[in-house]
Amino acid sequence: MNQHIRKHDADLLWRDREDVAVLTFNLNGETFAIEATVVQEILDLLPETRVPGAKAYLSGVINFRGKVIPLADIRLAFGMEAGEATIDSRIIVVQLDVEGEPCLVGIRTDKVYEVTSLSQSSSEPPPSVGMRWRADFIECLVKRNGEFIIIPNLKKIFSVDASPATSGMLFSG
């Protein structure tokens, strides 16, 4: 199956490796995973400052050790419902490459599970139909213990010109 994976994206994640260490977390009951090497830190919820006029999924900033970094809710980028903060809510701080410069982003999650290893042989590209969310923001799906883990394409979600369907321009109208 894996020969069907869009070659470019798959290369980024697997880089000819069979297994990749990932951090799994929960968003609206779905299990997501991001590569463990980009994760900087996992934080409890911090006071968030709203940025009027920003895209809906990047609507705030937080103070991360004296740096001001954006706080993202990737649910909104996918077009999922926003969730309420619970006692399990955490922020995962990841370092991404935006236009060639390292950039820290906090990702809001409902619950963080564990660091685990996923294997390339059980991964599949996102199906073209039957998905509630934007397929181009999903890098691949990995089957594990009878459920699918969604690996989001963070690079694409946080590319500067990304304009997801839910982009909430404050000043329009």
Binding site: K55, L104, V160
Partner: peptide, 22 residues
Amino acid sequence: MSKLHNDVVTFSGATILGDGNV
């Protein structure tokens, strides 16, 4: 401001207040 907020032109930057808020 983060590069990801480049589209927000109304703010030139951010600062951290005494209570740790931005």
